[in-house]
Design a protein around this nucleic acid. Structure first.
Length: 276
DNA sequence: GCGACAG
DNA sequence: ATCTTGTCGC
C-alpha cells in the first residue's frame, strides 16, 4: 500500500492529461465549415434536385435526484418545417465518469454515440441530417466541447447549444447581456462572441423578445457558425430550441417513470453490461 | 494565491 | 445537472 491520497491525486491528474490529449487528437478531424449536401428550407427557391434539410436531431440527458449516477439519455428527431417529433429513443444508464468542466464529453458522449449508431445501423429513415447538442462546440477551453466530440465520432454535422456561458478567453455573460441590451432596439438578437484574443467562439442569441438570458451557439462539426445560427432560429419556439427542449422533456419524464418503480436493467456505459 | 468553470 | 410555487404579464 502507498500514500492513497497522493496517488489518487496524481492519477486523476494523469487522467485529465490523457483526456486533454484525446481532445487535441480528435480536434485534428474537426471541420468548421458547411460539409453537407442538403439546403436549408429557408432558402428562397429550393433548387430542383437538391435535398432539403428535413430531419433535425437533438440530444439531452437528465439525472436522478436520488442517485445522481443514474441518467437517461434521449435522442429526438424533428421534422422541418413542422417541428413535429417524428422519432425518439432513450437509454437508461449508470454513469461512473464524473462531470468535470471542460471534459463533459467523456461523461455524456459514449451513450449518445451508442444511440446514434444504433439508429444508423438500423438504416432508420429519420436518421438526423444535423444534430443539436446540449453543450458547447468550439466554445470550449481547448476549442473542442461535447458537440465537436460527438460530431467527429459520429461523423455528423452538429451544433453546440449552451444555456450558460463557459467562461473562455475573457468572455463573460454579463457583458454579453449588456451588448444585447444595447442592440435590442435594432431588433438585433445575435451577438458575436469575440474573445480577448480576437477569436470568434460563437454567438449569444436571444430567441424571444421577453427572454433576458441568451443561449450560446457554437460550431460543433461540419457546419459554419452562420448555418448553425440559421438552423437554431428555425427551431426556436421558446428560449431553448425545440430539438433540445423535447429531448430534455422526454428524458426527464422517462427518468421519473422509471425511478418510481425499482430500476431494472440499467446499462453501464463503461462496461457495456447490464446490471440487475 | 484565489476565483471561475458547459452539463 | 438537481432542489422548487406562485406569479406577473400578453
Amino acid at each position: 500500500m502507498d500514500g492513497g491520497e497522493a496517488s489518487n491525486e496524481s492519477s486523476s491528474r494523469n487522467q485529465l492529461e490523457n483526456r486533454t490529449e484525446e481532445q487535441d487528437e480528435l480536434k485534428k478531424k474537426l471541420i468548421e465549415y458547411d460539409d453537407f449536401t442538403w439546403k436549408l428550407s429557408s432558402s428562397m427557391e429550393p433548387p430542383q434536385g437538391s435535398e432539403m434539410l428535413k430531419y433535425v436531431g437533438g440530444v439531452d440527458m437528465s439525472f436522478s435526484k436520488e442517485d445522481s449516477s443514474v441518467a437517461c439519455a434521449c435522442l429526438v428527431v424533428l421534422e422541418l418545417p413542422s417541428l413535429r417529433v417524428v422519432h425518439h429513443e432513450f437509454s437508461l444508464l449508470r454513469l461512473h465518469v464524473p462531470y468535470v468542466p471542460g471534459f463533459l464529453a467523456f461523461r455524456e458522449a459514449p451513450v449518445l454515440l451508442q444511440i446514434l449508431q444504433k439508429m444508423r445501423d438500423d438504416k432508420h429513415p429519420f436518421y438526423p441530417q444535423v444534430l443539436m447538442v446540449d453543450g458547447n462546440g468550439i466554445l470550449h477551453p481547448r476549442g473542442f466541447g461535447l458537440a465537436c466530440h460527438l460530431g467527429v465520432l459520429a461523423q455528423l454535422p452538429t451544433i453546440g447549444v449552451g444555456k450558460n456561458l463557459h467562461h473562455v478567453d475573457g468572455l463573460n455573460q454579463s457583458e454579453v447581456r449588456r451588448s444585447l441590451q444595447l442592440k435590442e432596439n435594432e431588433h438585433e438578437q445575435v451577438i458575436t462572441l469575440v474573445g480577448n484574443s480576437g477569436f470568434t467562439w460563437g454567438v449569444g442569441f436571444r430567441p424571444t423578445l421577453s427572454s433576458i438570458k441568451p443561449i450560446y451557439i457554437s460550431v460543433g462539426h461540419r457546419i459554419s457558425l452562420e448555418s448553425a445560427v440559421e438552423i437554431v432560429k428555425m427551431t426556436c419556439k421558446y428560449r431553448v430550441p425545440e430539438p433540445i427542449r423535447q429531448a430534455d422533456i422526454k428524458s426527464r419524464a422517462y427518468l421519473q417513470k422509471h425511478q418510481t418503480e425499482p430500476s431494472k436493467r440499467i446499462w453501464t456505459a463503461t462496461t457495456g453490461q447490464t446490471e440487475p
